[in-house]
């Protein structure tokens, strides 16, 4: 944690002049989510190189890897979330990933998908899009998919999901430039997404309509109230207690340096 703070302080100093001149943000926090075995760490390594360090998520024995990457005068601080198949089953990894997405609100989230089994990977992507609209979909391993005769229409996928979709073959280093430029668009806000929303059965949607306004009254626009409403309706104790803690302390759960403040 100390290392992270030091890192950020150094960066702050570097960019002070730039900020003074046009008061523009130049450092962004980018989360990396994805299933295991999708080449997520290959992408993380390719983007950050040796500028990375590891530690544990606060209070959890889950590995936390961070690294930084410079692109067109900006600094992206990448947070590699644990590889998970879903965000709904309350394992330590899944809690870490979803709490980070909901409460720490990264400037952009890259969801890495395996092109050879898109269906299972989309399960996670749709869950991420439920939490945050500031997402970029990275369809990795397209070379392998091509070898297997699988072709993915990324334009059509982007249209369906309402967020940028970038095909990559990270092992060969293909597509990383496009990925960085898509991240830039979403993180700086020059691209505004209209993400796909999963529509549940009527019973659930009716319940959400009743609960969501109350939650919005409580948390305002700070967190995603539809997502919170769904978790409340599921009686998800970890999410409920996180919100409870937030209301009691009224301390913003987001720390500037992108750390998890739920501990």
């Amino acid at each position: 944690m100390d290392l992270i703070n030091r890192l950020f302080r150094r960066m702050d100093a570097n960019e002070e002049s730039a900020r003074k001149s046009n008061n523009q943000k130049t450092s962004y926090i980018i989360a990396l989510a994805g299933n295991p075995n999708t080449g997520k760490s290959t992408i993380f390594n390719a983007l950050t190189g040796l500028r990375q360090h590891t530690g544990n998520w606060p209070g959890k024995t889950v590995l936390r890897a961070e690294g930084s990457c410079s692109y067109r005068g900006m600094t992206f601080n990448l947070v590699d979330l644990p590889g998970t198949y879903s965000l709904l089953s309350n394992s330590a990894e899944e809690q870490v990933a979803r709490d980070y997405l909901c409460f720490s609100k990264p400037d952009a989230t890259v969801v890495v998908l395996d092109a050879t089994c898109l269906e299972r990977n989309l399960n996670l992507a749709l869950q991420v899009l439920e939490i945050t609209s500031k997402a970029v979909i990275c369809v990795n391993l397209v070379d392998e998919a091509k070898r297997k005769g699988i072709e993915i229409n990324t334009a059509s996928l982007s249209e369906e999901l309402g967020v940028p979709v970038v095909p990559t073959a990270a092992r060969e280093g293909h597509g990383l430039g496009k990925l960085l430029s898509a991240i830039t668009g979403v993180a700086t806000g020059s691209v505004v997404n209209a993400p796909y929303t999963v529509k549940y059965e009527k019973k659930i949607e009716d319940a959400v309509v009743k609960v969501e306004p109350h939650i919005r009254k409580l948390v305002g626009e700070e967190f995603n109230s539809r997502w919170l409403a769904l978790r409340f309706l599921e009686h998800d104790q970890t999410v409920i207690s996180a919100v409870q803690k937030w209301t009691e302390e009224r301390v913003p759960l987001k720390i500037k340096a992108g750390g998890v403040a739920l501990a």
Binding site: L118, E119, I150, I152, N153, T154, S156, E160
Partner: peptide, 13 residues
């Protein structure tokens, strides 16, 4: 939904 989207965008050549 994942299944439906997959059918739409993936083709096995």
């Amino acid at each position: 939904d994942a299944e439906r989207i997959t059918r739409k965008v993936v083709s096995q050549k």
